[in-house]
Design a binder for these strands. Structure first.
Lengths: 153, 153
DNA sequence: TGGGCCATCTTGGGCGTCAATGGGATTGCC
DNA sequence: GGCAATCCCATTGACGCCCAAGATGGCCCA
């Protein structure tokens, strides 16, 4: 298994820690550099978490911009200023910092959501709402294209 | 870790000192020349702090300007005339001088913002405003291009 | 097929270390 | 003789590391 799939909700303990699902940790363990890179998603109240390859993707994207343009500055600020490295404790937990809480609204439970090459942290009920909306959008898309509802989503 | 990433806000004490985040100090400690050079950022009410390589960045920026222009002269003055060296005390703190305060509006708290090969000092609320604007611009960029969900957000 | 055993994961808490912060004392320069 | 920079030490709180227990699910065997 080399992708982040499925989702799970885990509890935050009194010290602000939460276990990263074992399935996700196994994916990370296969990598050369097990470092975790996290950033505050632009489109959602969620934290995007991945390995160094995630950071690399953003840097590659920035190379396409004029280094002195405002867009480049914005991207750089977002990638480095709004990013953070997460550390596992010896049990595979991460601590939920304010960096995570303020952007997501997470208080005592965390939804881990696989996104193939990275995963996200959500406040569980917000994720539920977001998922319902995404489903509705996809359903409309199918209908407008004349695709039957029985098609796998 | 060899880059400045993440942001943090620290307090200035009654003697005008502020701790540089340990993560940033660790990055600096890995360098051959641990000297810190600080410049007043051109585009923002912030101080750019980095090693001697920071100068290189500014020189590249100047190459994009017409050497006969007033802008070039101004930038040259900024880069070479208005720089300052920062010194750590034995606890890893720096003193916040007027050089820093006047350009940033910093009074009692400092936001440290990683920018990959250097970092910035901001007045916290101004940084917050700037960050919000940058994110809004990036969000618009995404929407106008209709970027798909699988793209990093 | 049902029950029990075992491996693994999630969760809880103790404890030592380090970072951030505050303040006193000393040095050096103007 | 100040003012400021520097050094040293103390306190507090956060974080990392370790060990322990409850929960879960899979597997084996009777």
């Amino acid at each position: 298994m080399d992708r982040f799939l499925s989702n799970a909700v885990n509890n935050i303990d009194s010290k602000g820690r939460v276990s990263v699902p074992a399935i996700f940790r196994q994916v990370l363990a296969q990598r050369a550099d097990p470092q975790l890179y996290a950033l505050q998603s632009i489109a959602h109240p969620a934290i995007d978490v991945g390995g160094m390859d995630l950071l690399q993707r953003y840097e590659d994207r920035m190379k396409a911009e004029d280094p002195f343009s405002e867009t480049f500055a914005d991207m750089s600020l977002f990638t480095y200023g709004d990013g953070a490295f997460l550390k596992f404790d010896s049990e595979g937990r991460i601590t939920v910092t304010d960096f995570i809480r303020t952007h997501t609204g997470i208080t005592d439970r965390v939804a881990f959501v696989g996104r193939n090459d990275f995963f996200q942290l959500w406040e569980p009920s917000q994720f539920e709402a977001h998922r319902a909306q995404a489903r509705a959008r996809l359903a409309r898309l199918h209908l407008s294209k004349g695709v039957s509802q029985s098609t796998p989503e």
